[in-house]
Every structure is written in structure tokens, then in C-alpha cells.
Computed example of a mutant assay.
Amino acid sequence: MTLLAGYTSKTIEDEMLSQSKGVIREVLSITPPAQRGEGVKLMGVAARRAGEARIDADLRGVFQGVKIRGFRMVPHLFGDRSPEVGKKPPYRVATKEKHLNVEGIYNARQASRSRRGKKSLTRGQRAPYYVDEKKLDALARKLKGNVGKLAQGSSLRLIA
């Protein structure tokens, strides 16, 4: 570095700053959702949309959003403990949410994906996790809010 600074008539500090700007540019250009590779270069709005689409695909691969109403209608009853016994079908049966921690399940599946070295997010089971639509939408909003965080604001000031 000292030798290079001598040839370019820059101080070592100026050369270090120049080199670090180059490194930061490269890191930002390969940071998701921006993509650079063989014939692919996504930046800006296109990269953001690609990142958001990837999040939607990951969430759809693991979860199925359902409307939790607190009950469901069933055509048959098993046992005679229900107050609905003796009435004609369909019967109204109380239900409760099975998977309460949607973000915890998502994080566990993300960790599993990184351990396996795979690109796609999987369920880890045959059926999807049926979760409340509102919780799934809230998680999607939170994850999409993080898309492109590194490529905005303070990191861009470093390379200006």
C-alpha cells in the first residue's frame, strides 16, 4: 500500500480511503437483493421487487394463511361430549390456533436452510403450517421492510 501511494502521489490515508470505497461498492453490489453475475445485474427498484418476491415465495413455501375464526364447521362429530350432539350437521366446533409463533417457525426454517446450504426455504414437513393471515401479513411486512437496508442511507454516504 505504501509503495502504491508513492507511485500515485497520494497519501496513505487517501489511498486507504479509495480502496475501502471500492470494497464497499463491491459488497453493496453483491448484497441481496441486488444481484450481479453471469448476465444478471439487478439494482434499485428491480432488485427491491426481486427481494420482496423472494420473501413472498419463501413464506408461501412454508405457511398457508387462513382466517382464524375460533370455530369450524364439521360434517361429523366423534364422541358425545359436544353440546352440538343431537343437532343436524354441519356442527360448529371450537378451535384454537395451533402455531402461535410464526416468526419463530420462519427463523427455524431459515436456520435449517443455511445448515443444508440450499437456496429454497422448505417446510420440514409434508403439510404447510396453517397460520393466521394477519400474523403472516405482519411477518411479510417486517421482512420486506429489511429488503435493501444495507444499500441505503449511511452505507451510500461512505462511497460518495
Rank of each mutant, 00 (worst) to 15 (best):
M73S: 05
M73C: 01
M73G: 00
M73P: 02
M73F: 11
V74S: 00
V74Q: 02
P75W: 09
P75E: 14
P75A: 08
H76E: 11
H76Q: 12
L77E: 04
L77F: 10
L77T: 04
L77W: 09
F78T: 05
G79Y: 01
G79H: 03
R81C: 03
R81G: 11
R81P: 02
R81E: 12
S82C: 09
P83H: 09
P83L: 11
E84Y: 04
E84W: 06
E84H: 05
V85P: 06
V85Y: 12
V85D: 10
G86K: 07
K87T: 14
K87I: 06
K88V: 05
K88N: 14
K88I: 06
K88Q: 14
P89N: 05
P89H: 08
P90V: 02
P90M: 02
P90F: 04
R92S: 05
R92L: 11
R92C: 11
V93M: 12
V93L: 12
A94E: 13
A94D: 12
T95G: 02
T95Y: 07
T95N: 03
E97W: 02
E97H: 05
K98L: 15
K98A: 10
H99P: 04
H99K: 03
H99C: 09
L100E: 15
N101F: 07
N101E: 14
N101Q: 12
V102Y: 00
V102F: 02
V102E: 00
V102A: 03
V102I: 15
V102R: 00
E103P: 02
I105E: 00
Y106I: 01
Y106Q: 00
N107T: 10
N107H: 09
N107M: 12
N107C: 02
N107D: 11
A108C: 00
A108G: 01
A108D: 05
R109N: 01
R109F: 03
R109P: 04
R109A: 01
Q110K: 14
A111Q: 13
A111F: 03
A111L: 13
A111C: 01
S112R: 05
S112Y: 01
S112A: 14
R113G: 02
R113S: 04
R113P: 07
S114D: 14
S114E: 14
S114Q: 15
R115H: 04
R115C: 00
R116D: 08
R116N: 08
G117L: 06
G117R: 03
G117N: 03
G117H: 03
K118Y: 05
K118W: 04
K118T: 14
K119R: 14
S120K: 13
L121T: 10
L121D: 07
T122K: 09
T122H: 10
R123G: 13
R123N: 09
R123M: 07
G124Q: 07
G124V: 05
G124M: 07
G124L: 07
Q125S: 09
Q125D: 04
Q125V: 08
Q125H: 03
R126E: 11
R126H: 06
R126P: 05
R126G: 08
A127P: 01
A127Q: 15
A127R: 15
Y129I: 06
